[in-house]
Simulated assay, not measured.
Amino acid sequence: MEEKGFFVNDGSSTVIKLPKNSSSLGGGTAVAGAASRGGIAEVYERGLAFVDHFAAMRGYFSSCGILGGLGAAFCVYVSLGLDYRLEGGGVSWITIILILVTFANFLFIQVDWVGYRYEPILFDRGSSKVHIFRSAGLPWWQLGWNLFGRPRSEVQSFDWACVDAEVVTFTIFTAQVPRRESALVLSIKESPGGSVEIQRVGVGPSFAYGDVTSPVQRWEYVRRFMQGEGPAWAPGEVRYKDFGVTFWESLTLMQPLIGPGSSKYWAKGPLMWIGGAVCLIAFPLSAYIGLNRYLSFRLKRAPKWPDDIRASIGAGPFDDARLKEMVDAAAVNSKQKRLGRRKG
């Protein structure tokens, strides 16, 4: 492993270790501003809740599980009929395997139907702590069959002084094409300045195409907020926007020419019309996947913080209208301060 300044390269991934006591990286490289980059799910008076890395991964497991489960269940039915005729009422090993495959597909459905919509990371300036919301799932004896169970949850809390940050870059494969991605990851130590890591967690969605600037800006936004150098909400910020959460949006998923927002694609001209017409060929498949995303969103629960944490982070979560009011009020106060300095 090679380590130089804040850069570590182990041959398969790279890590940029980010400072918590300044607004620059090692080697004098300046941070290009502070921005959440659309990773914030909820804003409180003294708290920011970011989504986890996998918040958008919803509906895909159940899409496979429903089709696979129906197919496997039909094969079990056929296999049992053959067993009755050929085995004299016994059960063959093929039937047992098919039953296990059916059970595995039900597990896929359960992953998408039971749980929480996302597992947020809450930066609590009121108590100088970082809280990680975790889904504890269902009891083991409910796995595979209870598709509408009530999931358990837990909250892990750590002192802000024990939190370090890293930008981790890695390679993923989409359609057998490698693509470089980056993510902001918290490395939580057992004590302030310690070397023993006890927890790692991603903050917000990852970034594509080798973008390492955006996760650095996200960390700078968090750092300034937690250390009292920046507000909870700043001008130009946007909250995390999930997709496939309304019925029509889900039904027309991956279809540029139909559904909400299609007018901007129609305005792009003939090439987009041709591409959109080609996409319509896959409409049955895209609608099936989209509706499974919608069903998953409706069946999963919204995460809730314990009362003591809610008391620490204060009022909220705020809606977009309230956030706009906060930004406007901050702008007016800033203008008044500038005018006051000029008069002085």
Rank of each mutant, 00 (worst) to 15 (best):
L339T: 09
W140G: 06
Y44C: 04
V222W: 12
I309S: 03
L339A: 10
Y118K: 02
W145A: 00
L107W: 07
E45P: 06
S128T: 11
G194C: 00
F148Y: 12
Y44M: 03
F106T: 11
V332N: 07
C162K: 13
A55M: 14
E45V: 08
V8T: 08
I188C: 00
F173R: 12
V177N: 08
T169A: 07
Q227I: 13
V78T: 07
Q199S: 14
E220G: 02
V222N: 02
F297Y: 15
N9V: 05
S127D: 13
I258N: 12
S128D: 06
W233T: 03
F6W: 09
G210W: 09
V130I: 05
Y265I: 13
E229F: 14
L122W: 04
G28V: 06
V278Q: 09
R134I: 07
R301E: 01
A329Y: 08
A175K: 13
W266G: 00
E87A: 14
V196W: 15
V327G: 05
H53Y: 14
A329S: 05
E181V: 10
A35K: 14
F243D: 12
P139H: 00
G5W: 09
L25T: 03
F170G: 00
S128M: 13
K129A: 13
G27I: 07
G316M: 01
V332W: 00
S79I: 01
L122H: 06
L100S: 03
S24W: 15
G27N: 06
F74E: 12
I109P: 02
G193Y: 11
A277S: 05
A32R: 10
I40G: 05
C64T: 15
W93D: 09
Q227V: 15
V8R: 07
L280H: 10
A267T: 11
I198P: 02
Q199R: 14
D164S: 09
M272H: 09
G204M: 01
W145E: 00
K343F: 15
G202C: 12
G5D: 05
I40C: 04
Y77D: 15
C64R: 13
P235V: 10
K20A: 11
A56Y: 10
P256A: 01
G193F: 03
G69N: 01
D52C: 04
G33V: 01
G194P: 07
K268L: 09
Y44R: 01
L271K: 12
P178T: 06
I99V: 07
K241A: 15
Y60P: 04
V222H: 03
V327I: 03
S286R: 06
P215K: 02
C75N: 10
G59N: 09
I109V: 08
V114Q: 02
K337F: 12
E154S: 15
E42S: 06
L339W: 15
K17E: 15
M57S: 15
F225M: 00
T246I: 05
V201P: 01
S23W: 14
R179N: 10
